[in-house]
Write a protein that binds this DNA or RNA. Sequence first.
DNA 1: ATCATCCCTATAGTAGCTACAGGGTTCGGG
DNA 2: CCCGAACCCTGTAGCTACTATAGGGATGAT
Lengths: 136, 136
Amino acid sequence: MAQQTFSIGELAKATATKAETIRYYERIGLLPKPGRTAGNYRSFSTGHLGRLSFVRRARDLGFSIEQVRDLLGLSDQGDRPCEAVDAIARQHLTEVNRKIRDLQALRRELDSLIGQCGQGTVAECRIIEALSPGHE
Amino acid sequence: MAQQTFSIGELAKATATKAETIRYYERIGLLPKPGRTAGNYRSFSTGHLGRLSFVRRARDLGFSIEQVRDLLGLSDQGDRPCEAVDAIARQHLTEVNRKIRDLQALRRELDSLIGQCGQGTVAECRIIEALSPGHE
DNA sequence: ATCATCCCTATAGTAGCTACAGGGTTCGGG
DNA sequence: CCCGAACCCTGTAGCTACTATAGGGATGAT
């Protein structure tokens, strides 16, 4: 069976990733260096396609580049226990929960700020006032 | 009455801001350039203190630098209607709400991912599997 | 042959700081 | 009067995760 290869543009389309981003992932070592054609174009394999899909999915779930790097390293060593993978995911979940709480607190403050705007002039604007020094 | 002045360190302490950040705000024009002492040290006034407090409070509420810049410009012109201020705050609130929704969706996905980890080896890890291509 | 469309490298820009390096200033003690 | 500590100065590079040029070469269709 024929080895299927992709140009960077084809890989980009297949993974909904910009070509620049693919080159960036290669540069920082998230993606192995692909082969080259006679005209020096990158030539990606189905292996690259799989790996890039993995990276994109993990990034979409909000894992950092370093976390993705760790997950990739672990997934390459199938005979080791799964705990480390679980730990990375749990750590990420903790961060997500913290961000949600922070943003919800923020929303409450913004809500009360906006509720106070009486549509007068800036001089008597409660929003500006609340931001100005001398409060709390 | 004596004009009170502050060194950058004093201003930093008074506003819980690092000195580097204060210099940065000056450089990008969020803070007016302060006077200088004979030894070329910055000399801030109570006006600077007020303005920096405003900036910090707005930043803590998640307003971007550009939004803070707009708010500052508006607060300097007390005789204009308050609508523009309200609009900036509402726009920010919309963004915050969107972020909260996105993160909550993320959390649901992470939750189901983590729930599936059966503590086996990486080869049979559901998390890795869910990230790998061939799903959906 | 020519043009559009792809691709290449290298570099700089984004947000919002933070962290140096390599100096000068000020102030208190000895 | 000098020394060291603690402060301050400028300028530049680093951080995340890309994105966007500039200035070229390669490929494919007409």
